[in-house]
Design a protein around this nucleic acid. Structure first.
Lengths: 329, 329
DNA sequence: ATGAAAGCGCTAACAT
DNA sequence: ATGTTAGCGCTTTCAT
């Protein structure tokens, strides 16, 4: 019924090995033989069974992607970058959503390993010790993208969130706005704590103690952003640095509803840089994180790891810039 | 090195067949034997090789998803719904982006088939005859989600875009605004032509000839939406029905820049219903397409198809509603 | 309830 | 340059 390599071999009057060779571009095949085999392949409309191939070769040309939520613009931008590069190198990707749930994360990892993926990419996520342990024992190449995790020895690609936060806060402080609220989203605790350190450093350099001024709130989506607006007012904040773009928009609209002038009374800078920030009015100032590139570079790194090529750094840091738009003075 | 079913069998002093049985929940295993085997599995930390399993059983518990662009909010919402259900039924999903390119689409399909996926879901896309042919010959269950394709006999799930367009246009016309522009996005020509039919029917029912009033423009993203705003003005449009939410926002902002009052001078209704429509001001009226459900129901349908269960309809139509917000009068 | 053995469709030595 | 053959790690008859 389904045509196999054996059928092709028989029809072409060669051995399976030869068919396999032309399939895999092995140069040790006489051109005429190659042509003969190719003709039969076309005639029979033969398509190699990738599963059998995977079992025999121990390579599946598929990589797993573990992602908090594909419908989040931040992650889907990363995913797109990553898939484009994967396609370029002839890898397919299996995507699993975890909603940051450690159980789901571990499950996803184990599933992928049992599917014999050649490599795994983590986007965001917290990587609890269970998974860390699994990574260790499974010996699958893993890279972490855009989560700010750089404390362990797993290859990763990020921007320098510490510096970004420091720069943003520094600019704000220099302009005299010291009552900053950092609005976290729970994407990555590690990244967020790095950013807090950066901000405190900015205070320090300006001669202030960050603890006297900086406060923290949590809001990961639009509704939550609107919700916390009151608190920002109550605490006399005059600037927010917010991880989630959607939360930033929520805050923006919360401000509209309260009749608060922005950026005069409250400045907003977001940190995810999805295309949302330029699709609202006023346009939101943001840290220009190269989302697509983060994914693309991560996948490129993974291809090298899977090929056992030498890599100079397993911790790559992409440049970022800061786009001051209309929610900052 | 890697522990196989054979190792488990040896350690548990049973045959591979028995181990396989406990692995697959076959009831024909004495409880004590089952326990013994399970203990060894835990002790050795054995994980079945899904590739070998796939080769032997001809089932891979993975389904392919062919999608125009995962970073498009519309598709990623569908994808999320679909993946949630897939996870529920223990399927993994391989995602491929095609940018609506027929070549890429065909390639993706062929790749998935060679990976022996148990089923394939198409989101959007045009399904040219090549692919249609491949679907025919490969005999893989396929379902199409949210693309409005219902002209062929491939199982699909959609809303009734014809009715939705008719309803929206009808309301507009009844209110006296007849100069409508339908802004397409090229997502699905078929869906768009169905919608045009619906709109014309609405004119008809109101006693007008749609051809005298209806015009069409194309804009699939924010920038394009802003760009075409001039044309809308030049053609004295007083309402737009637009496929892409981002284009709708572009038009909205184009209006702001031209100082055009909305909805007084121009009404906007979008048709994708991503969460963007409520994240801009004014909020955009839209056809409330149940994106997540479209994906979820599609995947559920596919699981039935893969199980060779009886399905009553292979063409399911989900209900929709229309949310009149602030860009309509 | 359990075991033996024949594949699943391919790759990769090893021979020639 | 080509063929032979032994797996890859599992499922699945078929016996018992």
């Amino acid at each position: 019924m389904t045509v196999t390599i054996y059928d092709v071999a028989r029809e072409a009057k060669v051995s399976m090995a030869t068919v396999s060779r032309v399939l895999n571009g092995n140069p040790n095949v006489k051109p005429e033989t190659r042509k003969k085999v190719k003709d039969v392949i076309d005639r029979l409309n033969y398509r190699p069974n990738a599963v059998a191939r995977g079992l025999a070769s121990k390579k599946t040309t598929t990589v797993g992607v573990i992602i908090p939520d594909i419908s989040d613009l931040y992650y889907s931008a990363l995913a797109r970058g990553l898939e484009d590069i994967a396609e370029m190198y002839n890898y397919q990707i299996i995507i699993t959503n975890t909603d940051q749930d450690p159980k789901k994360e571990r499950n996803a990892f184990l599933n992928l390993v049992s599917k014999q993926v050649d490599g795994i990419i983590f986007l965001g996520g917290k990587l609890n010790s269970d998974v860390l342990q699994d990574i260790e024992t499974s010996r699958v190449p893993v890279v972490i993208c855009g989560s700010g995790e750089e404390d362990n020895d797993i290859p990763n690609v990020n921007i320098n969130y510490y510096e970004a936060a420091k720069e943003v806060a520094g600019k704000l402080i220099a302009d005299g706005t010291k009552n900053i609220c950092f609005v976290t989203a729970g994407y990555s605790r590690y990244q967020e704590s790095r950013m807090i350190s950066g901000m405190k450093e900015a205070y320090e350099e300006a001669g202030f103690n960050g603890d006297d001024y900086l406060m923290t709130e949590d809001a990961g989506d639009y509704e939550k952003g609107k919700e916390i607006f009151g608190k920002l007012l109550d605490n006399e904040r005059d600037a927010v640095i917010v991880i989630s773009d959607e939360a930033a928009i929520g805050i923006l609209h919360g401000g509209h509803e309260h009749g608060v002038a922005m950026p005069q009374r409250l400045q907003i800078i977001s940190c995810s840089n999805t295309r949302l920030v330029t699709m609202v009015r006023p346009k939101i100032s943001s840290v220009a994180v190269p989302l697509y590139d983060l994914g693309a570079v991560g996948m490129r790194l993974l291809t090298k790891l899977m090929n056992e090529e030498e890599v100079d750094t397993t911790s790559v840091e992409l440049p970022y810039s800061i786009d001051y738009r209309t929610t900052t003075r």
